[in-house]
């Protein structure tokens, strides 16, 4: 078995990890909002967010990535676009 040891390999792993998270989160958000969203679309400004979406998103992120969203994390800047959500999850995962 070959192990990744170079920084290029690790960068590749991070890119793949980022891509897979983006894919999963995009799938969830698209399904929840019932419309496609681009990676940097602020979906809270689209008018399509339902009253349930905020809690459903948090429940999804907590269950899928085994993180805990705390009250201090409640900031739209963490959740308003797909890329920002991925960045938030990455920070929580350390």
């Amino acid at each position: 078995m070959a192990f990744s040891t170079t920084s290029e390999d690790k960068h590749g792993e991070r890119q793949e990890d980022h891509s897979s998270k983006l894919l999963e989160i995009r799938a969830f958000v698209t399904k929840s909002l019932m419309r496609p969203v681009a990676d940097d679309d602020n979906f809270f400004e689209t008018g399509f967010v339902t009253s349930m979406f905020g809690m459903q998103l948090i429940t999804f992120l907590e269950q899928r990535y085994k993180i805990e969203v705390l009250d201090e994390d409640l900031d739209l800047v963490n959740f308003c676009t797909l890329n920002k959500i991925v960045a938030f999850v990455d920070r929580k995962l350390g």
């Binding site: 009253s51 905020g54 809690m55 948090i58 201090e72 409640l74 900031d75």
Partner: peptide, 9 residues
């Protein structure tokens, strides 16, 4: 919670 999240969350 945080201000502004009283209804949504």
């Amino acid at each position: 919670g945080r201000p502004g999240f009283g209804l949504s969350h």
